[in-house]
Design a protein around this nucleic acid. Structure first.
Lengths: 331, 331
DNA sequence: TTGAAAGCGCTAACAC
DNA sequence: GTGTTAGCGCTTTCAA
């Protein structure tokens, strides 16, 4: 498998290397005749430009990195993130950038160096925490697009967020409309903006109704965390009559615990989740739907815009929608 | 953020570029004095070699790709794969290769081209199906290491497998020892060697006991698939008294269905899963443990060996172990 | 042990 | 529209 060089293509097509290069890079000014000759030669030789050479000369990697936080298992277990990645990948499919999922390893900063040394042209960061130290180091090397605001309030160029505040509020209002008065919440990590926002939406709705939270416990977005949190909630002196969990996975964990405790859902405890992922449908869970795939697509789109020097909005907020199912049915 | 070049480092250290290059690439023959001067200069300038230039000159990407099958959601949802990736990443941490997770998109072959154009030095392929067309195309471009045999029986250089046959057999024998006689299985995809092997182990154990399978249904490794399969099993004229599911996720899905159907586990139906992932522990599920992290580490290790030209075994088989919990307790 | 010199395969001015 | 000419920043013989 010897790869042909641009030189050979040029020779076969009877043109210069420059012309071949022009064709390869979306010919702006090439005669139809030359264009065709080159395309034919490329096809015949099965030519593909050498990435390293191209990067070196053009100072572009033609690759976009999507940074996966160190805790790979958590990232992989999250249906929301899977959808986001799918969206990003889909949008990038017909660009000439490849997607590289990069793991943010702690040790020696490998990922950071890769990014800084020109491994990618830009980075998409999702599922980030206040404790992530790599963010600043890659931000001053390449353009970065964030899925979700930075929880520490740092300013960033470009973020795609979901209206988590409204989502938390809607979920809680639904529970209130159902007549529930002892509403608890299982939050996401409070080191993440999503975690904070959903909780704040919950608080806002309760406050508007003149009620106090009936319990706020961090469930870390995972099923196990949700189960643990639910147990803690049940151990409280006054049992909640409703739970708003900031992710479907946590809601699902809570559902298991409620069931084991012999409590009926929604009769004894109504439950609302967040994401409207496959788990929600499978568990008849009322959930706040967020456009996961779309978020990925927008993230990719913005990155492409940024790289092309097109103007981009600093903040894009995507809407949420309450999907009502049996765990907290309509009145 | 202007990156210093090797030239500047050389100047500061008072040596030639060649010497700096030698130091950067694991100095084979550099005087202690030069070595130190260079190291000091590198530190002072915060120098890191330009990836593209390095790749171009050395014809090495210093990167290893781990190919993620198109169906991102399935890959991400699988705790086994998350562990494997963690293992690979961990082993690669102190090598000078970065790990790139690459998504095998269908359209236009983006990932394949990336690999063939020198984007990575080698590829690790896990979770592959007989229908995957990209495999052959990357195999003739770079060294490839497989997690799991190819289900179509094609010969490959280097595969790391788990003793799935034995695992399936052990699980089934345990159920037999419990006195179960109508044992059904929920298989993984039969387009994957793991799927086939675990089922064959199950069959072998039954055959040895002179029994027939009480049902074999494909559950695709996911919770939803496991639930659907369990429903199909319950719809059969004779209800199974035990189920061996080829993954914990499927076992978990089955557990839910059994519970909804008012059946007691293990009294009415005993259940054994596979993976011994977090779900198993959380659900008190008896499961066949496979060394997931270790598999990732071995995969990475072999790739590194391959790239270094060291001899590598064509097949490495890792052992499994039955972990007994309440869903199929010890006698 | 070290340096000089010749590229790696491509892009990007610049001239034609 | 097209070719010529320089490099991009590094590795790597080859001599010294």
């Amino acid at each position: 498998m010897i790869r042909p060089t641009i030189e050979e293509v040029a020779a076969l097509a009877g043109v210069s290397r420059s012309t071949v290069s022009r064709v390869v890079n979306g010919a702006t000014a090439v005669s139809p005749a030359a264009l065709e000759a080159v395309q034919r030669a490329i096809a015949e030789l099965n030519y593909a430009p050498n990435r390293a050479a191209r990067s070196l000369a053009s100072r572009q990697a033609h690759a976009i990195g999507l940074v996966i936080p160190e805790d790979v298992a958590r990232f992989f277990g999250d249906p929301f993130l899977a959808e986001v990645v799918t969206g990003v990948n889909g949008r990038l499919a017909d660009s000439d950038h490849v997607l590289n999922l990069l793991i943010a390893s702690d040790d020696g900063d490998k990922m950071t160096r890769f990014v800084r040394d020109g491994g990618v042209d830009g980075a998409i960061i999702v599922s980030h925490h206040t404790s992530d130290t790599f963010i600043d180091r890659i931000m001053d090397a390449v353009p970065v697009v964030f899925g979700g605001r930075r929880a520490d309030g740092r300013v960033t160029d470009c973020v795609v967020d979901v209206d988590n505040l409204q989502g938390g509020r809607t979920a809680t209002e639904h529970l209130l409309a159902l007549g529930r008065r002892r509403i608890a919440t299982i939050t996401g990590p409070l080191t993440m903006a999503v975690g904070l926002d959903r909780r704040d939406g919950y608080r806002a709705a309760l406050a508007a109704a003149g009620l106090e939270p009936a319990g706020e416990i961090d469930g870390d977005f995972r099923a196990q965390g949700g189960a643990d949190a639910a147990r803690a909630l049940l151990a409280q002196p006054e049992r909640p009559d409703a739970i708003f969990a900031a992710s479907d996975l946590m809601a699902r964990g809570a559902l298991d615990v409620l069931q084991s405790a012999g409590l009926r859902v929604p009769d004894d405890v109504a439950v609302v989740g967040f994401d409207d992922s496959a788990v929600a449908a499978a568990s008849a869970l009322t959930s706040v739907r967020q456009p996961m795939l779309r978020q990925g697509e927008v993230l990719a789109e913005l990155m492409l815009d940024l790289l092309a020097g097109r103007p981009t909005p600093a903040l894009t907020v995507l809407p949420t929608e309450l999907i009502v199912r049996e765990s907290a049915p309509a009145l």
